[in-house]
Design a protein around this nucleic acid. Structure first.
Length: 292
DNA sequence: GGCGATGTTTCCCC
DNA sequence: AGGGGAAACATCGC
């Protein structure tokens, strides 16, 4: 559910809500939430720490703590971080709770239990959230997938993307964009939307893209991600932001989940297919398979 | 009740 | 290297 714009929305909200608060207690309601670290050890490292800030890295939420530790939260498919004031009514499927000394709390709600938390030494993480060493990477454990470039950073240039497409030339572009080791934060929704905007067929090999197509793709990735952030992310089913509210991006999908509906650009019916085990949506007229 | 699908990531086999 | 499939897990819709 949460991709870069959704996680960015949550991180920005939490930054305003919890910065300066002091953790009074941590409770795990699901044994595997903090594995391989036992919840008791986890709690010991969090209690009495002050939240200095909240950041996003890829699809991870990072809480910077005083003393230098960083609490890393991976929401995976269905994770939510809900801020609740003291005495708020209970929520369903709460897997973990960060309780502050003023009795407000952040609740980690996660239907499918794929989400995880970890605590890493901040010295092992660069200012951009990337692990500085193999040891740092290991410290993230299952959370360290995010090592790719940030697509909204200045480093993500058209030239960088062109080189990347050349290096990974044998990969299908749709699948390549989903790999967080290359570019961090793009999920299925923004992948489909960016390829449609750039008029590139999802099965095209990365190495077959022309310079003009690579430039369009670079623009499209930034455009769809920024639009997603501006609209507070996309919501489906029970996905909510840190304030418990839905985003508005789901109303703006041009192709994602729009099978059989007319392409907003040319009117041809949008096609749903499966690629790399993921549902893919594209316009068979606008997004041509043939290399120009 | 069964089957297939769901926004993510990792892992294993070919 | 890359593709495909499965797995982690729960719920929803047909």
């Amino acid at each position: 559910m949460p991709e870069l714009p959704e996680v960015e929305t949550i991180a920005r909200q939490l930054r305003g809500l919890v910065t300066g608060r002091v953790i009074g207690a941590f409770r795990s309601h699901w044994g595997r939430l903090t594995e391989p670290v036992p919840p008791r050890h986890f709690a010991r490292r969090l209690v009495d720490r002050r939240i200095e800030g909240v950041r996003r890295r890829g699809k991870l939420v990072l809480f910077d703590l005083d003393g230098g530790d960083v609490l890393v939260v991976s929401l995976r498919m269905t994770g939510q971080l809900l801020f609740r004031e003291a005495e708020a009514p209970p929520d369903l499927r709460v897997r973990g709770v960060i309780a502050f000394t003023d009795r407000s709390e952040v609740r980690f709600v996660d239907t499918r239990k794929f989400g995880r938390m970890a605590i890493v030494d901040g010295r092992e993480i660069g200012a951009d959230g990337t692990a500085r060493s193999a040891a740092g990477a290991r410290a993230h454990g299952p959370l360290h997938a995010t090592s790719g470039i940030e697509p909204l950073s200045r480093a993500f240039t058209t030239r960088w993307l062109g080189d990347f497409l050349h290096r990974r030339g044998r990969s299908a572009i749709k699948v390549l964009l989903l790999d967080p080791r290359g570019i961090a934060g793009i999920g299925n929704i923004y992948d489909c939307e960016a390829l449609w905007r750039a008029r590139i067929h999802p099965t095209r090999l990365a190495g077959s893209l022309t310079t003009a197509e690579a430039a369009r793709l670079h623009e499209a990735i930034g455009w769809v991600l920024r639009k997603g952030i501006r609209l507070g992310g996309a919501s489906r089913r029970d996905y909510l932001d840190a304030r418990g509210r839905a985003g508005r991006m789901q109303r703006e999908f041009q192709v994602y989940a729009q099978a059989d509906r007319p392409c907003p650009r040319c009117g041809r019916a949008i096609v749903r297919s499966v690629q790399g085990g993921r549902a893919t949506f594209h316009c068979p007229r606008c997004q041509t398979v043939r290399v120009p």
